[in-house]
Nucleic acid binder design. Structure first.
Length: 692
RNA sequence: GGGCCAGUAGCUCAGUUGGUUAGAGCAGGGGACUCAUAAUCCCUUUGUCGCGGGUUCGAGUCCUGCCUGGCCUACCA
């Protein structure tokens, strides 16, 4: 067989949230396909990265009072940990916020410019003055201009009307709660229509897309050149965003940034670049070579970007087009749409605390077909399928026969098994074809059919009876040799789905599983290790525990949302947290070292020659007095301070200043100058009381 | 409103270019065994193949109308 060169990607998860079981449909689907290709001996690499740019990340960073870099670094670490936990094995996992990506974006952009596809147009958009940012449609609500209903979405109303957010009556920014104003900005557009002919041909050729996807594109965007309505014009694609925007600035359009959907798919290439650099390979050998098959796995929600814009970008910039785009449906849980608020959007990390990743990998495989249908995670079906198929049928074969031969190993020659192993070997190509076509459900069905024949064989051969008769030792060894080889054959076929089981099986026989063809030849004359449990049954209580924890998380999300809504009504800006980001964590021990006390200002006076300082005398009650120089001259008149209570750092080491000894500090917030705000205790506090 | 997909046993699904009496797994019922993770094996019940027309010697399969569900998308096909 010719060795194929295959580059595979999964969609880049957005850095704005954790991985949940819905995401994993895609990564597990892709990982299975990649492992299958590698097992078949092909040169296959799996590229992915975090998608890091865009308004959502920018706003989140502001809200949390930290930099975007911090937010995305944390997400990257979490994501990689979750993927590793589910045995999703990338050859490289990068980030769209990388030097490699920036450079490639520039190259692709230049090529698209050179091809004459870029035009500039003015766009009217709502601008949030307080946050200093343009607002995407989804960040605006307002009164419908058609029917007058309040609190409608930025681009459409319940009454059925559609409009631009600039047409809304009384628009409100959902970010700051303030009223945005209309501003005009220059945007750059890619004229996709110029590539219409190419896209028509590429999408409708029947080679690259599932048929229903090709139909969808024709119906919604491309039109049908052979119909009486004819082809439809593709709209220009708005590819830039004015500052502020978290992303890459467009080199030949300062103040403008590439829209996240421009740089995200280029992230596939950037990730490949990183892998190439680490492995002594060249990017062009993967992205500009007819010998390479590029396969993208994506969810149906991003069909539009990957089947029109992305091929258009690649075509215009001279890179290879994907051989296939594999599109899958969404995950539902117990027949319902996943919902974070209802606790049905199980996080990957929550699942892993309670359940085995192998179980989910198998369940998804048994449900996934080549279509865009949604797949349902029914908990009862999940439990029964995994337990009866994997534990009851497959693993049981090994666990019921391995211990009989742990001292003698496998027979020297493969005994007559009535054609069972040969039938399994013969099924190999059909199973492989199912994997290749992403018909994992069919592959699993075929494997289980083989498994269904193996257990009755053991039953009839009765090794437990043979064991009692020393004269039948050879027969016993033969029976177990057959059972174990049938088991191993199944595991080889399942190994793309169940890498962990494959490893345990390799340990049992002292022979790693590295090739699909190993299923063609039985193992003979080798020792068999002591059998160890390979897989645990799923118990109802584990499911319940996961569900309960997820409910808990949902409750916390709701509470946080309620808090956020409460905070939003005051319109508090995130700016202070950006100006002074959170410092590192301290312990309670650290905190108690600082002795904060309530103090009364008993005198306050100007200091001769000092620009910023006032000299304060603070009383801690009784005879306790402290002299403090405070930099609050621009904000307070001395007379106004006398008699009021403040909070001071009482145990601060005294410091000799130009104008005398300062024996502490008074607590205040604000950037300085006139904006200084002294802290006051509530009514009833007494000087000298410690602040805890 | 339009488009796509689906509708086969209680559940999850097979059913190849139309071809005998429509299948499997799970669940249910009965029995056996005890090597194995209350695992396994044998036997067994269940179907107006969504509904109505049509083509055909013959339709779960092809055509057509309708119904239901899912998804996509909207006064634009």
């Amino acid at each position: 067989m010719n060795q194929r060169k295959i580059l595979v990607t999964s969609a880049l998860p957005y850095a704005n949230g954790p991985i949940h079981l819905g995401h994993l449909v895609e990564y597990i689907q892709t990982d299975i396909w990649v492992r299958f290709q590698k097992l078949r001996g092909h040169n296959c690499i799996y590229m992915c990265a975090d998608d890091t740019h865009g308004t959502a990340i920018m706003l989140r960073a502001r809200k949390e009072g930290r930099s975007e870099d911090e937010v995305i670094a944390e997400a990257n670490e979490d994501h990689q940990k979750d993927f590793a936990g589910f045995q999703v094995n990338f050859d490289n996992y990068g980030s769209t916020n990388s030097d490699e990506n920036k450079k490639l974006c520039g190259e692709v952009w230049q090529a698209i410019r050179d091809a004459g596809l870029v035009v500039e147009k003015d766009v009217e958009q709502l601008f949030d003055v307080q946050e200093g940012t343009f607002l995407a449609d989804r960040f605006v609500t307002g009164t419908c201009p058609t029917c007058g209903k309040p609190d409608q979405a930025g681009d459409n109303c319940e009454c059925g009307a559609t409009y631009s957010p600039v047409d809304l009556i009384d628009p409100v920014s959902t970010i700051s709660g303030t009223k945005p104003e209309i501003r005009t900005a220059k945007h750059l557009f890619i004229q996709l229509e110029q590539l219409h002919g190419f896209l028509e041909e590429w999408t409708q050729s029947g080679k690259h897309l599932q048929p229903e996807v090709a139909n969808y594109l024709r119906g919604h965007f491309l039109g049908d050149p052979n119909s009486k309505e004819g082809a439809k014009e593709l709209r220009d694609w708005d590819i830039s965003r004015p500052a502020p925007y978290f992303g890459f600035e467009i080199p030949d359009a300062p103040g403008n940034y590439w829209y996240v959907w421009f740089d995200a798919p280029i992230g596939y290439m950037a990730s490949t670049q990183q892998w190439c650099d680490a492995n002594g390979e060249k990017l062009d050998d993967w992205w500009k070579s007819d010998d390479v098959e590029i396969h993208h796995f994506i969810g149906k929600d991003i069909t539009y970007f990957h089947t029109l814009f992305w091929p258009g970008m690649l075509k215009a910039s001279g890179y290879s087009l994907p051989k296939k785009i594999h599109i899958h449906g969404f995950l539902t849980v117990n027949g319902q749409k996943m919902s974070k608020r209802d606790g049905t959007a199980f996080k990957a990390s929550t699942y892993l605390k309670h359940l085995d990743p192998t179980a989910l990998r198998y369940f998804y495989a048994s449900k996934l077909g080549p279509r865009l249908d949604d797949i349902d995670l029914s908990m009862t079906e999940f439990v029964s399928k995994v337990n009866s198929d994997l534990v009851g049928k497959v693993v049981n074969l090994a666990s019921r026969s391995a211990k009989f031969v742990k001292d003698v190993g496998l027979s020297a020659t493969y005994p007559d098994d009535g054609g069972l192993f040969a039938a399994g070997a013969a099924a190999g190509e059909e199973i492989a074809a199912a994997y290749e076509a992403c018909e994992y459900n069919k592959a699993m069905r075929l494997v289980m059919e083989l498994a269904d024949r193996a257990n009755p064989y053991v039953e009839n051969a009765e090794p437990w009876v043979l064991k009692k008769d020393p004269e039948k030792a050879q027969e016993l060894q033969d029976v177990c040799t057959i059972a174990l080889n049938l088991f191993r054959q199944l595991v080889i076929y399942l190994s793309p789905v169940l890498p962990e089981l494959a490893e345990k099986t390799a340990t049992l026989f002292g022979e790693p599983i590295t090739s699909w063809d190993q299923a063609q030849t039985p193992l003979v004359g080798t020792p068999v290790a002591k059998f160890k449990h390979m897989m645990k049954r799923i118990e109802e209580k584990d499911i319940t525990a996961m569900e309960e924890e997820s409910q808990q998380e949902a409750a916390e999300i709701k509470a946080a949302e309620a808090n956020a809504a409460a905070a939003d009504q005051y319109g508090d800006s995130g700016q202070p947290m950006i100006d002074e980001p959170m410092t590192e964590e301290c312990t309670i021990e650290d905190f108690v070292k600082v002795d904060l006390r309530v103090a009364r200002i008993v005198s306050a006076e100007h200091v001769e020659g000092a620009r910023k300082l006032l000299k304060l005398t603070l009383s801690l009650g009784g005879d306790h007095r402290k002299q403090v120089f405070a930099g609050i001259k621009a904000a307070y008149e001395p007379e106004a301070l006398v008699g009021r209570l403040v909070v001071m750092v009482a145990n601060l080491k005294p410091r000799k200043m130009k104008f005398g000894l300062s024996e502490g500090m008074v607590c205040a917030s604000g950037p300085g100058g006139e904006e200084v705000f002294l802290l006051s205790p509530d009514e009833g506090a007494k000087p000298g009381q410690r602040v805890h």
